[in-house]
Amino acid sequence: MSLAKQATVYLLEKDTGITDTIRSLCDEKSMLLECFESGQELLRAIKGLAPDCIVAANNEPIGQALTLMEALDTHHHDIPVIILGDHSDVSSAVAAIKAGAIDYIEKPVIYGRLAEHFNQALARTALMS
């Protein structure tokens, strides 16, 4: 029986195709995926269990991911955040990185880049176990 903590990813995304891609990647890496409908719901969940990584779409409502990042900063949560956004939205990408996101990945999700970040989250989790 392993006492190692399973790495957890919190996902804030309404596009089922993107969600399915991320779920597949999490399954492949034996990571737990928790999906949320709103930033507020995700923030409430963090009070119980902080994830190893957050993936948040910066779309409906507009700027939801950046608002989430501001709330994380206000509450001093040091959780790596990856923002998913539209391919032509350079200003949102710059704003996300300035707000502290570890990456801005254009939709459709680039599987390889996301996999690299998940590998890093797994390594951090293993070090803390």
Rank of each mutant, 00 (worst) to 15 (best):
S91M: 04
H75A: 06
R113I: 01
V55H: 07
A115C: 05
I62K: 00
T8Q: 14
L84N: 12
A7E: 08
D15H: 09
M31F: 06
M69C: 12
Y10N: 07
A50Q: 13
A115M: 04
A123Y: 04
P108Q: 11
V109S: 00
K47L: 02
S2H: 08
D89W: 04
N59P: 04
I79D: 05
G17C: 00
A95D: 05
R44E: 13
I83P: 00
L33S: 00
D20R: 03
A123D: 04
H87L: 05
Y111E: 07
A71E: 15
K98Q: 13
D27E: 09
C26R: 02
N59F: 12
R124W: 04
I54E: 15
Y104T: 01
K5A: 09
L42E: 09
L114S: 08
G100Y: 08
D20V: 11
S2R: 07
D89L: 03
D20C: 05
R124A: 06
V55Q: 09
L84K: 10
T16P: 00
L84Y: 11
L25G: 10
S92A: 12
V109N: 00
E116M: 06
S88F: 01
M69Q: 14
A56G: 11
M69D: 13
V109Q: 00
E106I: 08
S129W: 04
G85Q: 08
A56E: 11
A56R: 09
L11W: 06
V90C: 08
N58M: 02
V55K: 08
E37F: 12
V55Y: 05
L42H: 09
E106K: 10
I22M: 06
E41G: 12
F118M: 14
G48Q: 01
T19Q: 05
G85V: 11
I82K: 06
Q40P: 10
K98H: 11
V90F: 11
I62F: 00
A65Y: 02
I18M: 12
G48L: 03
A99D: 07
L11M: 10
G63N: 11
H76P: 04
G48H: 02
N59H: 13
T16F: 00
F118D: 02
D20H: 04
I62S: 00
N59K: 12
V90Y: 10
R113G: 03
N59Q: 14
H117N: 10
L84T: 15
R124V: 03
I82A: 07
Y111T: 09
G48A: 01
K14D: 15
A57K: 12
